[in-house]
Design a protein around this nucleic acid. Structure first.
Lengths: 205, 205
DNA sequence: ATTAAATTGTTAATTTATAAACAAAAAGAT
DNA sequence: ATCTTTTTGTTTATAAATTAACAATTTAAT
């Protein structure tokens, strides 16, 4: 099946977050305009995204929450799940690790890496912490597909290279250093400073 | 002066990051295609962004790094700077705080807020930690324009309301809960799960 | 039953964002 | 000096994303 537009994928992920919350509150159906309001989007856009993923609602009743969660899962989740490794267990790495535990069963953080001997060899949040030097073996053995990089900027490049050589398929880079990856590795970069500078720019007249 | 497109503002912020790095390495001029390569963009886009902000380069030599940093500063930085408050000093809040210290003199983290008595009343990374109950006074007294929310999801809504009532102009929300803000408050939301789910989706065939 | 109101699904239009194209100018080579 | 190459700046074209428009359908009300 052909890939959906990146923007639609992002929104589906956001919708699912809200839908799960709705389900936990016992909500059975949801209208496109309700979902839209949560995410500051238009109802048309929500319906269009839903159409693109091949799901259908019930006219005059909206979308069945539980079914739609499953439908998004069929798009976003890989059959047996994907394994994730986090490199750099400082504050940011730990925040991400905590964030994930128990939230997305199909995205499992199965290993974390650091250089600090106070951390390596121990478990943090139920996940074993390995030394970064063991990335090649551990990525192979634990079948890790995706890497999250939260190391200090000066180690960003070599960390990425290590992960790529170990056979990783996707990288989420939180360092301030832009990376280069081969064509067959998907790279996503996020810089908090940019986000805040954007807020700062638009938060004034 | 009219506002630039949001995408251009984001890229200018990213360019500046790289330019500062170039300057620190003694680089005097940079070509549009060099800057483009760093950020996985096209040279045309870089030149267009530069044009939109009203800056000019030197033909056959490129852009003067130092001058361009200043030019971006005239766009992104507010005259006397803007003050920032972080609410929630868990791992994520601390990571952001560390990230910022000494990096952007015009974006000053002047206060952090928490409920934990082990943290309130003390200094963390050189910034005083206040109890969240004192947000109204501290925001007023310290002239805080921008708020970063890194509290547990169940407190996201009330935190935002508190900041808004205290007169904040912009919010960067890192919680998993979508917020609602009045028209005159700029809101930016970021969810790590969405980023990783996007990577997971595109990192497979 | 009939009508009115509400909501989905989809096509068409619009807007925004990106890329292509190319003139103009500067540097260097001949 | 003249020509060639390189790179900027800007316009025009293309592509992507969003919004508008509206038919189809269902529910509820009269």
């Amino acid at each position: 099946m052909g890939k959906l537009p990146a923007k639609t994928v992002e929104r589906l992920s956001e919708y699912r977050r809200t839908l799960i919350n709705c389900m936990n509150h016992g909500k059975e159906y949801i209208y496109s305009h309700e979902l839209a309001q949560f995410h500051h989007k238009t109802a048309v856009q929500v319906r269009r995204d839903i159409m693109l993923m091949g799901f259908s609602g019930v006219q005059r009743k909206g979308y069945k929450v539980k079914e739609m969660i499953d439908a998004i899962g069929r798009i976003l989740d890989y059959k047996n799940g994907q394994n994730v490794g986090i490199v750099g267990i400082g504050h940011l790495g730990t925040a991400i690790l905590q964030y994930f535990t128990g939230k997305r069963p199909k995205l499992r953080v199965v290993a974390i890496f650091d250089v600090d001997e106070k951390k390596t060899g121990r478990e943090i949040n139920g996940v074993h912490c390995y030394h970064v030097d063991t990335i090649p073996e551990v990525v192979e053995r634990e079948n890790i597909d995706l890497g999250i990089i939260t190391v200090p900027p000066e180690f960003a490049k070599e960390t990425a290279e290590g992960l790529i050589n170990a056979g990783i398929r996707g990288i989420l880079n939180f360092t301030t250093v832009p990376l280069n990856v081969p064509e067959d590795v998907y790279l996503e970069e996020y810089d908090m400073i940019t986000s805040l500078e954007k807020v700062a720019y638009f938060a004034r007249g």
